[in-house]
Computed example of a mutant assay.
Amino acid sequence: MTLYLLALLIGVVAGLRALTPVAAAAWGARLGWVPLAGYPLAWLGGWIPVIVFSLLAALELVADQHPKTPSRKVPHQFITRVIAGAFSGAVLMMPATHWVRGAALGAVGAVIGTLGGAEFRARLAARFGQDRPAALIEDAIAVIAAFAIFAVAL
């Protein structure tokens, strides 16, 4: 039951930052938090995926600060977050052989995280009178939550 909740939550994180949970999944696989040996996604724990996904996640955090970055609710951004949530949820539940359920829960979580995260950030930005502090808080929540979810999945 706990894995189901974690899969949903990793999807919520994907709704906040699409590549952060994917990078956390790669690190989780690399560090043995999610034992993927013998499964189709075992490649995720290699150094190349860890480095590539970490760099992409870092670039996303930087790009998110740019005022011309499109809304997370535009179709291509929204779809990317749902796919990232589904992938991360599948990774999380693959060792339990429930990867399809994990993918579904991750996708649902991504929808929740995308819509809820946009609302949360808008309200937080309104309180601060500017977007940057809200974006940095959202970044911190996404990074800490993604790694915490994969760490406790062990």
Rank of each mutant, 00 (worst) to 15 (best):
G109H: 03
A118Q: 08
V22E: 10
I83M: 09
A42F: 07
L56Q: 10
V111S: 02
L41G: 02
P21Y: 11
T97P: 00
A151D: 04
V82P: 04
R81M: 02
L3G: 01
V91Y: 08
A63F: 12
R30A: 13
V22P: 04
L124M: 10
L19D: 03
L55M: 14
F120P: 01
A125P: 01
L56R: 12
G102H: 12
G113P: 04
G116N: 13
R121M: 06
E119K: 13
Y4W: 12
G15V: 12
A126W: 00
T80I: 00
Q65W: 00
V82K: 08
A25N: 12
G113K: 06
A84F: 10
R81Y: 01
A57M: 09
V143N: 06
Q65G: 12
H98C: 04
A103N: 01
A126T: 02
A37P: 00
G129R: 07
L92W: 01
R127C: 01
V111H: 00
Q77K: 05
G89Y: 06
W33C: 09
Y39K: 15
R123E: 02
G46E: 15
D139E: 11
G85Y: 07
T2L: 14
G45D: 08
E60D: 07
V13L: 05
P40N: 07
R123A: 06
G11Q: 05
L19V: 11
R72G: 15
V82W: 07
A153N: 07
L44V: 09
L136S: 05
L9D: 03
